[in-house]
Simulated scan of single mutants.
Amino acid sequence: MSAAPEAPAVDRRGLLVTAGTFVLWGVVPVYWHLLKMVPAMQIMAHRVVWSALLVVAWLMLSNGFGWLRKLAAQPRVLPALALSAVLIAFNWGLYIWAVNAGHVVETSLGYFINPLVNVVLGVLVLHERLRRAQWIAVGCAALGVAWLTLNAGSPPWIALGLAASFGLYGLVRKLVAVDPVAGLGLESLYLFLPSLAYVLWAEAGHGGSFASGWGWGTDLLLVFGGVVTAVPLVGFAYGVRRIPLSVVGLLQYIAPTLQLLLGVWFFHEPFGLDRALGFGAIWLGLALYAGEGLWHSRRRPGA
Results as ranks from 00 to 15, higher is better:
2 S>T: 15
4 A>F: 09
8 P>K: 13
11 D>K: 14
15 L>D: 01
19 A>C: 09
21 T>P: 00
25 W>F: 09
30 V>R: 05
31 Y>C: 11
40 A>C: 01
43 I>N: 06
45 A>E: 05
48 V>A: 08
55 V>M: 10
58 W>C: 10
62 S>L: 15
63 N>W: 03
72 A>T: 12
78 L>N: 02
79 P>S: 08
85 A>I: 13
85 A>L: 10
86 V>R: 04
89 A>D: 04
91 N>T: 08
92 W>I: 03
101 A>L: 05
103 H>T: 00
103 H>W: 06
119 V>Y: 10
120 V>D: 05
122 G>C: 05
124 L>M: 08
127 H>G: 04
130 L>V: 00
130 L>P: 04
141 A>L: 00
149 T>A: 07
152 A>N: 14
156 P>C: 04
157 W>P: 02
167 G>I: 04
168 L>H: 02
169 Y>G: 02
171 L>W: 11
174 K>W: 05
176 V>D: 06
179 D>I: 12
181 V>N: 01
182 A>K: 05
183 G>N: 07
189 L>C: 14
191 L>V: 10
192 F>C: 09
203 E>L: 07
206 H>R: 10
209 S>F: 03
213 G>K: 03
214 W>K: 08
214 W>E: 09
216 W>F: 15
220 L>Q: 07
221 L>C: 10
221 L>K: 09
223 V>K: 09
226 G>D: 07
227 V>G: 10
229 T>E: 03
232 P>Y: 04
234 V>M: 15
236 F>E: 06
238 Y>S: 03
239 G>Q: 01
242 R>N: 05
243 I>Y: 01
245 L>D: 01
251 L>E: 03
254 I>R: 01
254 I>V: 15
255 A>K: 09
260 L>Y: 05
262 L>A: 09
262 L>I: 15
263 G>T: 07
264 V>Q: 06
265 W>D: 14
265 W>C: 15
267 F>H: 07
267 F>A: 07
269 E>Y: 05
275 R>V: 10
277 L>R: 14
283 W>P: 02
293 G>I: 07
295 W>P: 02
296 H>W: 13
300 R>P: 03
301 P>S: 11
